[in-house]
């Protein structure tokens, strides 16, 4: 029980839908979450982030029991598929929210924000509004905010699903770099097994009401059991 994410005997239930889980993810792991649609991949992320609650079982993040903690108090950043920014705020303000929800920033913090924006390649666009950005640029804003928030866990829910193949590769490369720089523990939901393969790291399979513990990607694709083989289509 020394992982970054530890869920033991977790049982989730809502309107007849059930999900059981017991697993541990070590610090600095890069995990892809895959499985059939509707199986509960997003639910798993929501439980870790605190948007959904387990009915029973324990959830420890970074060594602390967080079962009663609201989302803002958990050591977690989250990147959604879209709408990661407030449309009326500039890129700079959207990123600055990650440091100060009041938007009152010291000069030093302002420099941190600008550095993060440059790091994700948006240095020239800091004063733009989200409406003027492309899909890839919008997700870069979300990643810049992840950088300034400095939380050890990063959850991503199909973050690049709406992007073309080339752009998706670029973004995954950026994600890998940021993960290494900050030693983030990453859980990324994807519906593209190829992305999971390209990402390397580990894979968690969600299906049949179960969240399975992470397995190294190579092993996962080499010896799939019946449920996984059906999902992958081989």
């Amino acid at each position: 029980m020394s992982g970054m994410i530890d869920i033991q005997n977790g049982h989730y239930e809502r309107e007849g839908f059930e999900l059981r889980m017991s697993f541990s993810v070590p610090r600095g792991a890069m995990v892809s979450v895959i499985g059939p649609s509707g199986a509960g991949k997003s639910t798993l992320l929501n439980i870790i982030a605190g948007f959904d609650q387990l009915k029973s079982g324990s959830i420890d993040l970074n060594g602390k029991d967080v079962s009663a903690a609201p989302p803002a108090a958990r050591p977690v950043s989250f990147v959604f598929q879209d709408n990661n920014s407030f449309a009326h705020l500039s890129v700079r303000d959207n990123v600055a929210l990650g440091i100060a929800p009041s938007l009152r920033l010291s000069a030093a913090n302002d420099a941190v924000v600008m550095a993060a924006i440059s790091r994700v390649g948006l240095g020239d666009l800091a004063d733009r509004k989200p409406g003027a950005l492309s899909g890839g640029e919008l997700q870069r804003v979300a990643l810049a905010r992840v950088l300034v928030r400095q939380r050890p866990i990063l959850l991503l829910d199909e973050p690049f699903a709406a992007l073309g193949p080339g752009l998706r590769k670029d973004m995954m490369r950026l994600l890998q770099e940021l993960q290494a720089e900050q030693n983030l523990t990453v859980l990324m939901v994807t519906h593209q097994p190829d992305d999971a393969r390209a990402m390397g790291g580990d894979i968690m399979f969600v299906g049949d009401g179960q969240v399975r513990a992470p397995v190294a990607a190579a092993a996962f694709f080499k010896n799939p059991d019946q449920a996984i083989a059906t999902y992958l289509g081989n």
Binding site: G50, F51, P71, A72, L89, P101, S102
Partner: peptide
């Protein structure tokens, strides 16, 4: 929008204003 506000700890007057 709701999730983002919860995650960032935007609440009360800050949430209204920002």
């Amino acid at each position: 929008h709701d999730k983002l506000c919860q995650l960032l700890g935007l609440s009360g007057l800050d949430r209204l204003r920002i």
